[in-house]
Amino acid sequence: MPTAEQISPATVCDGDRSATTRRIVWLLGALLAASMIVALATGSAGTSLWQALSDVLQGRELSLRDRVVLLDIRAPRVLMGCLVGAALAVSGAVLQGLFRNPLADPGIVGVSAGASLGAVGAIVLGGALVVWTVPVSAFLGAWITTILLYRVATRRGRTSVATMLLAGIALTAFAMALTGILVYVADDTQLRDFTFWTMGSLAGSTWSKIYVAGPIIAIPLLLTPFLAKGLNGLTLGEAAAGHIGIRVQRLKACAVLIVAAATGAAVAVSGGIGFVGIVVPHLLRLASGPDHRYLLINSALLGAALLVMADLICRVIIAPAELPIGIVTAVIGAPFFLWILLRQRGIVDL
């Protein structure tokens, strides 16, 4: 039996869901804007966004404190949340399209672990001297892992769910073992950074990090719409996709590069934030169908909004202390993953 997402949303009478889906794009855009504003306005420092806005509008100077809190702490953090959330959700959606399988997620199939290995390698082996080396080596780690994974899990254009998940476990274990060796030789400061980083956090977001990670995430995300039709066709299988005129090899190479760049940069700046890539596309497929022309952009919007909100929870729930965001996404995402697995169990022959 093939992998199948067994869902039964209300039957669509004429089969064309594009109108509804376009409405959802606007809805999610509004959701993202709202969550960004709330996140900017909320925080333990007690600075009021509204007060600051009315001050600025009336021509008064902002106090230095307010300016630092709003512009140098909250703003880059919210923006980073958007970038990372969009990157992870879109990586998940593209990876799922590539594997024709709703269970593929960068965190689960080992791509994030590969990126971590690259990032830690750069930190520990002294490559962190230049700001670019960490995200770039994270990208290389993610890229190599994705290619290995595809080679192992796909035979003659068909992907086996079981092989993909098991290969993911093996790749994750291997990458983590190598990471462990690197950590062993790390010094104390590197170690402390590393521990907080692996749990996943947006706490260290600064404008300079955004300047580095921003392009590495934004450029691949802007390229994904060009993959949409190809990924739709790929659902028919690799051979049939070729028959309707899709250049499958090129599509796969681009998809792997995009996933690696987006995941690599996201992991480099925020560590292990899991499950965004599986929860977001799955919810969207339930709501508006699997057409990648809308799924990809909607994933970016919803992923960004969800991560900004999750980060907000981390900041306020035990204020003035902070929870690593990776814990929040795992607490919500892991049961969700099990739920998808359970629904699939009847029809997927793992």
Binding site: M1, V12, D14, G15, D16, K229, T235, H243, I246
Partner: peptide, 30 residues
């Protein structure tokens, strides 16, 4: 090749919940 010839496989399992209309439209994806 896609312009001048179409191929029907022995069976075509699909992994995402596309509607019948969406599947048929894939024939003219470009």
């Amino acid at each position: 090749l896609a312009e001048i010839r179409a191929v029907l496989p022995q069976a075509t399992p699909m992994s995402f919940p596309f509607t019948v209309l969406e599947v048929v439209r894939m024939g003219r994806i470009h």
